[in-house]
């Protein structure tokens, strides 16, 4: 039981119907207090008058005037979908036919893609065979060169040791030839200096 008059915010709570569980004592007080009941009634009169206020209408043609200033833009994905829809026939048999056409085209495109991929594999396979041949020829040339410089026995020993040994021997041979060339050039320039 409330023994004091309602506060202004409590009148608002009752007016808005938002008092919740706390509303019961407020309502009990209003029932027993003529002063608070009069204040709540006054507040209700104003709230009811506000709620009866009408909506005013703008002049006729308001929507047209607004839309004449609005840029209506169709997003690209909606436009694309709309364009695609325009190609779909209205009648059922034609739609089935179009669907079959699309299916056949899709299969053809898929088959072409698979063929291109397989062709690429063939190309890669051929290239690796050619690369292998070139490698064998290079190794053969190096072996012949080594046989000429070191003799057939040494060349046979290197061949038995593997490709890596042949490559190392080839590099050593080239390095030795290079060093020998440099040595001969140094000797020749030294003899020219002594002569002059």
């Amino acid at each position: 039981m409330q023994h004091r008059h309602l506060l202004p915010n409590e009148i608002d709570l009752l007016l808005d119907g938002d008092a919740g569980f706390g509303g019961a004592p407020l309502r009990t007080h209003v029932d027993s207090c003529a002063d608070c009941r009069a204040r709540l009634d006054e507040a209700r009169v104003v709230a009811d008058a506000l709620e009866r206020l009408p909506h005013f209408a703008p002049r006729t043609g308001f929507a047209d005037r607004v839309l004449s200033h609005v840029q209506i833009v169709e997003p690209w994905h909606v436009a694309a979908l709309g364009t695609a829809r325009r190609f779909v026939p209205e009648s059922r048999p034609l739609r089935a036919l179009a669907l079959a056409g699309v299916a056949v085209t899709s299969v053809a495109i898929s088959a072409s893609a698979v063929w291109i991929v397989l062709s690429a594999n063939l190309t890669v396979g051929s290239a690796s065979i050619v690369a292998g041949r070139v490698r064998e020829m290079a190794i053969g040339g190096v072996q012949q060169g080594l046989a000429m410089v070191l003799g057939v026995g040494a060349a046979e020993t290197l061949r038995a040791s593997g490709t890596m040994a042949i490559a190392l021997a080839g590099v050593a041979l080239v390095a030795a030839a290079g060093l020998a060339t440099l040595g001969f050039r140094a000797l020749a320039s030294a003899s020219r200096q002594r002569g002059s």
């Binding site: 703008p58 308001f62 929507a63 839309l67 209506i72 833009v73 169709e74 997003p75 909606v78 436009a79």
Partner: peptide
């Protein structure tokens, strides 16, 4: 948002008052 003009008009009709 999809660019349908009748939808623009409907929004104006609903809320002009």
């Amino acid at each position: 948002q999809q660019g349908r003009e009748p939808a623009f008009r409907e929004l104006v009709r609903r809320y002009e008052r």
